[in-house]
Simulated scan of single mutants.
Amino acid sequence: MLEQAADALNRQDYKTAAKLIATLVAKHPDDHQIQLYAAQLQEATNKLDNALEIYRLLLQHAVNIKITTEARQGIQRIDRIQSQIQANAVAQARAGIEDNIEPGFLVLEPMSQEQKQATAPKFAGIMNLDPYSARLQLPRRGWRLYRVGQMGELEFYRDRLQTAEIPCFCVSKHDTQQMFVFRVSHFQSFYPKATIVCLDDRAELRTFSFNWSEVTQIVTGMLPIFEEVMEIDARNRTHRKPRILDYVHICDLQLRDRRSIFRLCSQTYDFCDYKQLITQNRTQFTGDLSSQLSGDLSGLLNGERIPSTSHDNWKNLIAQIHKQVPEVHTQSDFTPFAETAIGYPELLNWINPHIELLRRADSPWDRAFQLFSALSMCKDKNSQIDRISTN
């Protein structure tokens, strides 16, 4: 029967071969020669994934040199076929999207270790990678800026990846620029509406009021402050090396319907705007107002004393914001995204970071945060559109 199965394969009589091989596998499931015929049948009937799995198992367990050689050759044939299929699909997609040449970004979303193991082979096939590299490139901690290119090609890859249950999204460069960013100086009030004083792109002070229900997302991150420090090596020679001395906290309040981002920064937020705070709370003071305010004013906020350190002030401010919008999603995985984004210096150069910190030199991390926040708003907007269209 083994010879009959081989003869049927040679004659391309795959129906007969399938019956014979199924019978042989049932009787001798551990026979490597039969498994080889089964893989060749799967390959011949265009079930390439099944054939590839059997060939790989044969390479791991078979000891017969002829069988392992044929299994390796089978893997090579399938790799060539899949590469050609991939190239043809990309060429066809590009031919159909020649007009969509707008630049954009393809972002991979994080997944669990179990998901990575399951989807890495699919990812490898789509992106023409080896399985080991595919596993390394699939993120676990946060977003990964995976590819920058023309939107037509990126949308093609996005659709294939989502079909393979690999979470991702793509956004055009144009969309990331269609929003207003304001640098918050301070809050004038929290109740019943939020009223803030901020700087626009021309560094002019402006005042905005909005309902807390308008806040659709909060984006947070920490920006490193690099300074050059002197180090002495083993030979008593001094060297200058950049080192992270501190971090600055950033918090974006996103109002999707207004296409606006109100950006708070722990280094530049004005915690000492006492006139506004005193005006709000004048009914809580009695007697001589000046005598009550003659001491340290750094703790006055809504009539209460708060810690005077910047860290504690920032914590209390963020806690107050979250108290107003407890149900709003917070996007906080900025650091892993930035670690991939700073690998595209040419990309980041055109981004206006809308961040001004006291540091010796500009940092690509500032621009990476602006991109991160803009992508977050675009993804949130697209998700809202999808929900509306689904309903």
Rank of each mutant, 00 (worst) to 15 (best):
M127I: 09
A71V: 05
L223I: 14
T69K: 09
T163R: 14
L357W: 04
V229M: 05
R135Y: 15
L41E: 03
E114F: 10
R158D: 11
N236C: 07
D366N: 04
A341P: 09
T283Y: 09
Q280Y: 12
Q84P: 00
T220Q: 08
K173D: 09
E114N: 09
D13K: 08
S133F: 14
N349L: 06
D175E: 12
V148H: 02
T23D: 14
C198I: 00
S298A: 15
S189L: 04
A120D: 04
G287F: 13
L300H: 11
E43S: 12
R94M: 15
Q40C: 05
S83W: 10
I34W: 09
R94Y: 03
Q292R: 08
L59I: 00
R256W: 03
D296V: 13
A374P: 00
S133H: 14
D312T: 07
E214Q: 10
G287Q: 12
Y247L: 07
A18P: 01
Q86T: 07
D49C: 07
T220R: 06
D7Q: 12
D99T: 14
L2G: 11
W350V: 08
N236K: 10
G74V: 01
R80Q: 06
F226T: 00
T309E: 09
T283S: 13
Q177A: 12
E109L: 12
R235C: 03
T119C: 09
I318L: 05
A118F: 05
A374M: 01
V328T: 12
M222H: 10
A89F: 04
R80F: 03
T69Y: 10
V248R: 03
T16R: 05
Q150K: 14
A118H: 08
S373Y: 01
I261N: 10
V184H: 02
L24P: 01
T279G: 10
Y132V: 14
V181Q: 01
V219T: 09
I261G: 05
P167V: 01
R160W: 02
R158F: 06
N64P: 02
S209Y: 03
N50S: 13
I81T: 11
W212R: 04
